[in-house]
Design a protein around this nucleic acid. Structure first.
Lengths: 140, 140
DNA sequence: CGGGATCCCGAGTGATACTG
DNA sequence: CAGTATCACTCGGGATCCCG
């Protein structure tokens, strides 16, 4: 598991070649939507929001704020707005008193969370290794 | 491809359950290393740096700065430092005149870039959809 | 001359208070 | 309850400077 085979390297290079047609540095940023889309979806708060919305089928503003520990009102509402306009989540407001607002993943959002989970699983498994790296660093 | 089967939903929920033992909101952040590790590795600049280092076996500071279009000296050097201490990349300095510094992925970093590629591939394929969502939003 | 470090400034963020 | 308003503050961008 520590080593990477040549086959894996070849596959990686192929994928990277396809990728870099799109995030190529010669493209002015306004012609490179991938980076733009990526910056929204890979934001640390957005990731946590999406994961929690994957876990619970539906969540309200203050519940979400409680789960996404440490997020502020301002950032939460801003991220929710962006995630909604980008099509990952849906917002439903009920004209009750007090008002009730429910957020949930769209179908599109669910497919993204599936992918996201692969990555966060890796992080969960490897975070001890990273912490060990941090400790070790500078000692040798 | 548009719809998500019940089976997929079940798998997702299982993974999320495993996950949320670790990013649970009841955990104080200092006991939640996953979020900490994640915030480094999912940073938008770090992602681009790692992808380019996946594409080229080795890169020097100014080359990297050119490819990671738009990054500043300060942020680049700071991200490189963090990525090094976390074990994703390695830095080699040659005492020449002028000085030469080379960065490359570690084996650990390569395994991460493999995972990262799965995600960025998704973004590449779906960014048109996101852009369409943005345009459509507010019209209905 | 390459690889940063430093400094200054503006945009974004966090904490709290407040409102429809 | 679901957000906005306010304000102090941090962080990133950009230019410049420095050191080997």
């Amino acid at each position: 598991m520590e080593t990477i085979t040549d086959n894996q390297n070849v596959r990686m290079t192929k994928k990277l070649e396809k990728m870099f047609g799109h995030i190529d540095y010669k493209h002015p940023p306004e012609l490179c939507p991938v980076r733009d889309v990526m910056s929204v979806a890979s934001d640390q708060w957005s990731i946590l929001i999406l994961l929690w919305l994957g876990y619970f089928p539906v969540l309200r503003f203050n519940k979400l704020k409680k789960y996404v520990y440490g997020i502020s009102n301002k950032v939460l509402s801003q991220r929710l707005k962006v995630l909604e306009t980008d099509g990952y989540i849906k917002r439903k407001a009920y004209a009750e008193v007090p008002i009730r607002v429910e957020y949930n993943l769209t179908t599109f959002g669910k497919t993204y969370v599936e992918r996201l989970l692969e990555l966060t699983e890796w992080m969960q498994q490897n975070s001890p290794k990273v912490l060990a790296n941090r400790k070790k660093f500078g000692l040798d």
